[in-house]
């Protein structure tokens, strides 16, 4: 009774459509299926491109990415070594003005993109990866593990982020890796909670039952069967987390956990110069702060657009 041997005679399966008159054959599902899917993707893409928020967000991010990659090659002056007139307000010569040692603020803001763009996405990605793993175990395995992990996650969320981060950095040192590790650890429980609820909705679907019926292991079910079906919320979470990571990383370096003073890092610049605001030298603080804000907002604009399209489809 194998399938191979059982072809042939006695078949009474519904015949392939054979209309009795000369009707044109109906379009079968697959053809329309493929084109329909491409069509849907094209339409989704067109929809997201139509959103001004998405376009503006992407443009801002692209500008900063270009600054980060090209660095000194496109800055008007060297961000560290140049010495011009000190404390110049913005002018045609120095668009963002100069700081107390005569360095060009514009050049420093452009070069400062590199640190944050290196650290924030890595931290967000690491946080999402660990969050996905933790959330998957909590959601799928449930039981005592879920109960205990959920309480830990909640207590983590109750702690003030920045304090914990500072504490960790002062004890572990303030290398980029420590900052990435700390931010990732802070994000993990948040991501885990999102993933857990997505997994809960999948766990009881029949395809999981079917996998159990053919004897699949737990790891296979979690990471091969369920994971690909919860990518939507994960992608949304990632884009949102990148925005938060930019903000957290900048905050940390403002508080002194970032690279030391000569560095053009945005947070460090703000921290280095905010004392001089009262003296009227607002530009040395304003422009790096505006740069942080622009990147956070851009990331959120992209995240919102991605979210609305992911949720609609």
């Amino acid at each position: 009774m194998s399938l191979q041997s059982s072809g042939g005679g006695g078949s009474r399966m519904p015949a392939v459509p054979t209309p009795s008159t000369g009707a044109v054959m109906p379009p079968v599902a697959p053809t329309s299926g493929v084109s329909e899917r491409k069509q849907a993707r094209r339409e989704n893409w067109r929809l997201i491109r139509k959103r001004p928020a998405f376009i503006v967000g992407c443009l801002i991010v692209l500008v900063w990415v270009a600054c980060a990659i090209l660095g000194n090659r496109i800055t008007p002056h060297h961000p560290l070594d140049y010495r011009g007139p000190i404390n110049q307000s913005p002018s045609w010569d120095y668009l963002f003005g100069t700081d107390k040692t005569g360095r060009d603020v514009l050049s420093r803001v452009m070069a400062g993109a590199r640190d944050v763009l290196k650290i924030a996405p890595l931290a967000a990605i690491a946080g999402v990866v660990f969050g996905v793993i933790l959330g998957m175990f909590m959601g799928y395995l449930g039981g005592v593990l879920d109960l205990v992990a959920s309480r830990i996650v909640e207590s983590f969320l109750a702690l003030p982020t920045v304090l914990i981060a500072l504490l960790a950095i002062t004890t572990l040192g303030n290398s980029s890796w420590v900052v990435i590790g700390v931010v990732a650890t802070l994000f993990t429980p948040i991501v885990a909670r999102t993933v857990r609820s997505a997994v809960l909705a999948e766990r009881d679907l029949d395809y999981v039952t079917s996998a159990k019926l053919r004897g699949e292991g737990k790891m296979f079910i979690m990471f091969r069967e369920i994971l690909p079906n919860v990518t939507g919320p994960i992608i949304v979470e990632l884009t949102v987390r990148i925005g938060y990571a930019v903000f957290t990383v900048a905050t940390l370096s403002f508080l002194g956990a970032g690279p030391p003073p000569p560095s053009p890092d945005w947070g460090a610049q703000v921290s280095d110069n905010y004392n001089s605001i009262v003296a009227g030298f607002w530009w040395t603080t304003f422009f790096p702060a505006a740069a942080i804000a622009s990147l956070v907002i851009a990331a959120n604009m992209i995240a919102d657009s991605v979210q609305s399209v992911v949720e609609a489809s």
Partner: peptide
Amino acid sequence: AEDKRSMQMVFQNPDSALNRA
């Protein structure tokens, strides 16, 4: 494995029964 092979199931809702991904 033999017992699992011998007995399988067809579910009510194919949307839920097939892995969408």
